[in-house]
Design a protein around this nucleic acid. Structure first.
Lengths: 171, 171
DNA sequence: TGCCAACCGGGGCGTGCGTTCCGTATCGTC
DNA sequence: GACGATACGGAACGCACGCCCCGGTTGGCA
């Protein structure tokens, strides 16, 4: 790979990281190119599609989270809650985390699977109500993460969801 | 107003009601026109903008809900929960309810205000945790309603949110 | 029945975006 | 230092959508 190509690839990644974090996946690709000081065509020389660029930017962080979710925990309930808290924290700080759970990609599917595993183990441990499915949890998180970018208090939202997950019947 | 004009206006309203319910606010206006059997121009003769059409379609239902929310209740906690349940039911059946809380309009603002009133009274009655604001509640509902169109179980989601709102500290 | 105003349809404009194409500039090698 | 491969930039394409315009049509009143 030519030196200038590598340099440009890096500039694109840096710009994308910043803008995806600030504005989420919806940021126009031309804006990323502009911030990187290159043309849109250059972006496409390095990444075949916008999704691919997004995945390249979020890959490391999300993969780390998934790995931590997959390792066995002594308290599955705590493990799930910790994971959700971490997602909430990330989402509160960077707008791309809430899109990582939404934008179609192999990474997103792995994230969903990891969530499903955590949920199942927490349910088997009796910490979380059993009438909730992976799909429900993903939908709930999707909604919660999105809500965080609309001026709501992240900590309060998280508390509500966590205490709602607790296994208990209707009041 | 000419007879054919009134007839077309009605056809547009019917088509818009169906399509907004099925696909939400994002349905292309041309599709509404096509379903109504008229041209896009005709739609704009009767409604100055897409938002105006949307408001005309949702006005009656939302206004009714707001009215029911504003009348005093003996149990403010139950009143809030009933209202949220009703919103969830509507949203589960029709995709436009979850957009009524989002699409900018004077109607949406009234809905937010009504929610705020319900929340405040429930908090004063001690049924709902006091560290949540109107903005938080709106964001939470926004997320929950959106989640309902992604295959999640509406009843379970609602239960989680309601039990999370209950005034209690962290586990 | 004839006339005019009101209304209709749909083609078209402007915009924004993801993506592609190609003439030009640049890098790295011989 | 020259040459070929490689990469660059940005103009342009295709698409989708909200919205407007205009030639033709239709409805209702005299």
């Amino acid at each position: 790979m030519r030196a200038d190509a590598a340099r440009n690839r890096e500039k694109v990644l840096v710009a994308a990281r910043e803008l995806f974090a600030e504005q989420g996946f919806d940021v126009p690709l031309d804006e990323i190119a502009a911030r990187a000081g290159v043309g849109p065509g250059t972006v496409y020389r390095h990444f075949p599609t916008k999704q691919a660029l997004f995945q390249a930017v979020t890959e490391a962080r999300v993969a780390t989270m998934i790995a931590s979710a997959d390792e066995p925990a002594e308290d599955p309930g705590r493990a799930l809650f910790a994971f959700l808290s971490r997602m909430a924290d990330e989402a509160a700080a960077k707008r791309d985390m809430s899109d990582a759970i939404t934008v179609p990609s192999e990474l997103r599917d792995r994230l969903h699977t990891a969530l499903g595993g955590l949920l199942q183990r927490a349910q088997q441990a009796g910490t979380v109500r059993t009438d909730i499915t992976t799909k429900d949890l993903v939908a709930l998180m999707k909604g919660m993460l999105q809500s965080m970018h609309e001026g709501a208090n992240p900590a309060v939202l998280l508390e509500i969801v966590l205490s709602g997950l607790q296994s208990s019947r209707k009041p």
